[in-house]
C-alpha cells in the first residue's frame, strides 16, 4: 500500500495568467486546499522585507509630532531586493547595535524657504554603505517618481532625521508586508457547495459569476452531488507593494515554508538521536544556524539550499536550471 509516491505523480502545476510589474495572477492546480492556503498565508505574513524601524529625530518644527512622523515613515515601502539572502535580522547579527549586514541607514532633511513644501518619500536618501545597490531605495510608483507624501512644511519649518531600516516580517508588524492584497479563490461555480449563498428569489440570478468560472466547468445539475470531491484548483492574484517583485514574493514564500518544514525535520531527527529533548543546546538542535543539521533527501536540489548556503538561492538557481538535467528529470516526477 505504498501510494505515497504515486499520489501526485506530477506535483503542483502552475499557469501564470497575467504578469505585470506589480502583479501576478496565476492558477495553481494539483494541490490540496491546505497547501494553497499555507502559500497564501505565508506570502501575506512571513516574507521578509525592509522597513524603517528606528527614527532618530534631530529637528522637527513641522506641525506633526515626532511619533506621528515616525509612524508615517515606517509605512513607506523600501526596495527590499534580495533582502532575504543579503541581509540578516538585527537580532541575529553579530554586531553591537546595527551594521551594514543587518540594516540600511537613510537620512531625511527638508527645510521650507517659501510657500508650502511637500516632503515625499524620494527625499529619503541612503547614506553610507549598503549590502547591494538597490536595497533601501524608497519605492516610487507614480509618474513623477515622488513616492508617498510624508508631510507638508510651511515657511521656516524643518525636519531632519536619521532613519534605520531593518529586515522583518509582517507577522511582527504590517509595515513589513510585501503584498497589498492576495486574491484567493477556488471552485468559482460552487460545485463543492462550500458556499451557501443568501438570496431573495434565485441565487443564480442574484449573484454575479466570477471571472475564474470560465476556467473550469460547472457541475451538471442533473448529476448527483459528489460528496467526496475536494478542491484542487486555486486562483491567486498577488499584488505587490513594490518593495519586492511579485515573482520574488512567491518564491520567498515557498522558501519560508520549506524552512519551516526543514526545521521540523531537523528538530525531530535531532531529538531522536539523543533520547528525548536533549536540551543541551537548543540553538544547535534547532538547526537554524547550522547548515549541516539537515541533509535534504534524494531528489531535492538547489531549492533546499536556500537555508543551507545562501549562495545558490532557490529562485536564482532555478531560473537557470535546465529542466531536463535536474534530479526530477529521472525521478518519478519526470518532467
Amino acid at each position: 500500500m505504498d501510494y505515497e509516491m504515486d499520489l501526485e505523480p506530477t506535483g503542483p502545476q502552475v499557469t501564470v495568467r497575467e504578469a505585470e510589474p506589480y502583479r501576478v495572477d496565476f492558477r495553481l492546480t494539483a494541490v490540496d486546499l491546505s497547501f494553497a492556503n499555507s502559500l497564501r498565508r505565508v506570502i501575506l505574513a512571513e516574507v521578509p522585507t525592509l522597513a524603517l524601524d528606528i527614527i532618530e529625530i534631530e529637528s522637527n518644527t513641522s506641525v506633526l509630532p515626532d511619533e506621528f512622523l515616525a509612524h508615517r515613515l515606517g509605512m513607506i515601502p523600501l526596495n527590499s531586493y534580495n533582502c532575504d539572502q543579503d541581509l540578516d535580522y538585527t537580532r541575529d547579527c553579530d554586531c553591537e547595535d546595527h551594521c551594514v549586514r543587518c540594516s540600511v541607514t537613510l537620512s531625511l532633511h527638508a527645510r521650507c524657504s517659501s510657500g508650502i513644501m511637500s516632503v515625499y518619500a524620494r527625499d529619503l536618501v541612503v547614506v553610507g554603505e549598503r549590502i547591494n545597490d538597490k536595497i533601501g531605495d524608497p519605492v516610487t510608483t507614480d509618474p513623477e517618481n515622488k513616492g508617498s507624501l510624508i508631510c507638508k512644511l510651511r515657511k521656516g519649518q524643518e525636519i531632519k532625521m536619521t532613519c534605520l531600516a531593518k529586515k522583518g516580517t509582517a507577522k511582527e508588524h504590517a509595515k513589513w508586508a510585501p503584498t497589498a492584497a492576495v486574491g484567493f479563490e477556488y471552485d468559482p461555480n460552487n460545485n463543492l457547495r462550500h458556499v451557501d449563498y443568501w438570496y431573495e428569489q434565485d441565487p443564480v440570478k442574484e449573484w454575479p459569476i466570477s471571472e475564474n468560472a470560465a476556467w473550469e466547468p460547472a457541475a451538471n445539475p442533473d448529476q448527483p452531488f459528489d460528496y467526496d470531491a475536494e478542491p484542487n484548483c486555486f486562483y491567486f492574484d498577488v499584488e505587490s507593494i513594490g518593495n519586492l517583485e511579485p515573482d520574488m514574493i512567491i518564491q520567498q514564500g515557498i522558501v519560508a515554508l520549506q524552512r519551516k518544514l526543514a526545521t521540523t525535520v531537523s528538530v525531530l531527527l535531532g531529538e531522536g538521536e539523543d533520547g528525548h529533548g536533549g536540551g543541551a543546546d537548543d540553538a544547535e538542535m534547532m538547526g537554524a544556524n547550522d547548515p549541516d543539521a539537515y541533509e535534504p533527501p534524494e531528489g531535492i536540489d538547489g531549492n533546499m539550499t536556500a537555508y543551507g548556503n545562501g549562495a545558490a538561492s532557490a529562485w536564482g538557481a532555478s531560473a537557470q536550471t535546465p529542466y531536463g538535467a535536474t534530479p526530477y528529470g529521472q525521478s518519478s516526477y519526470g518532467f
Binding site: 502552475v14 501564470v16 495553481l28 515557498i254 522558501v255 531528489g299 531535492i300 529542466y323
Partner: peptide, 11 residues
C-alpha cells in the same frame, strides 16, 4: 518540501 521545490520550479 519536495512539492514546494517543484512548485518553485514550475512557477
Amino acid at each position: 518540501i519536495k512539492d514546494l521545490g517543484i512548485l518553485s520550479r514550475e512557477f
